[in-house]
């Protein structure tokens, strides 16, 4: 039920130092999030698409993810043209359709997809463990990195526990319906899952102490800066600055 479909691969992007990828993705995403003109947003989406192609991830999976996220955006397409006060584009009887609403919805769509594609191509192409190591190199608090790692480590274990519980309630003939009984059953499933997690945590912590855990999470992975990483960060910085300049040029 939980997968990292983009994490493995051997594309140009996968070979770039994760620290450079995280830095570029953060810089790029925030820049795009703060743009409001069509020209920079279209460029931003094009760059993001290019980045996805270079990362060699399965386009079918990417497409599926895009559909889910654009489902949320659809709400804006339905509501904003009717409520975003401004110039009236068209009057359908008592209903006014506002041009500004359509424009805003279109901008949100461009922005959202551009940021999402950068996330997929630059960050989702590393495993969560690598992201944790990267964050620790960025001097994030040790405790937070440790929390990240331990959560990631046990998500798959807990998911198996969950499937075990679900299997056993199915064997007993449980069928989910909109009833209080269903909600009670799911609440007990959650409760049992939490108890199992908590008791496992005690055992894990004791085992860690037996092995001399001192509170420091040591990462043995070694990041290698190669020439591609430098070229990559140069190109991404170039695009980011280009988008900022476009935004300034077409502003107002």
């Amino acid at each position: 039920m939980i997968e990292e479909p983009f994490a493995s691969g051997n594309s140009i992007i996968h070979r770039i130092d994760p620290r450079f990828r995280v830095a570029a993705a953060i810089l790029y995403s925030f820049t795009v999030a703060l743009c409001y003109q069509f020209q920079p947003l279209i460029v931003a989406l094009a760059v993001a698409l290019l980045s996805v192609i270079f990362s060699g991830v399965g386009l079918k999976t990417v497409f599926k993810r895009l559909i889910v996220v654009n489902g949320f955006i659809l709400l804006f397409w339905i509501v904003l043209p009717l409520t975003y006060k401004g110039k009236i584009l068209y009057s359908l009887g008592p209903v006014d359709i506002y041009l500004a609403g359509i424009v805003f919805a279109a901008k949100i769509t461009l922005k959202s997809n551009a940021i999402l594609l950068i996330l997929i191509s630059l960050i989702a192409t590393m495993t969560f463990a690598t992201l944790g190591h990267t964050l620790s190199r960025f001097k994030m608090p040790d405790k937070l990195v440790f929390l990240l790692m331990i959560t990631y480590r046990y998500i798959f274990v807990i998911a198996q526990e969950y499937q075990k519980i679900i299997r056993s309630i199915k064997i007993r003939g449980f069928k989910p319906k909109t009833t209080l009984h269903t909600y009670k059953t799911f609440a007990y499933v959650v409760g049992m899952l939490l108890i199992k997690a908590s008791e496992r945590a005690d055992r894990v912590y004791n085992a860690m102490r037996c092995r001399g855990f001192t509170g420091k999470y040591n990462s043995l992975s070694d990041f290698q800066i190669n020439i591609q990483s430098f070229i990559f960060i140069l190109i991404m910085t170039g695009f980011t600055i280009g988008i900022i300049l476009l935004e300034i040029q077409y502003h107002g």
């Binding site: 405790k143 959560t151 046990y154």
Partner: peptide, 20 residues
């Protein structure tokens, strides 16, 4: 931290549960 981390994992899994 071990408690919080593994409970956090449990909440993550539980948030995937869809109730009718």
């Amino acid at each position: 931290i071990a408690q919080t981390g593994i409970l956090s994992a449990a909440f993550f899994v539980a948030s995937l549960i869809h109730v009718p």
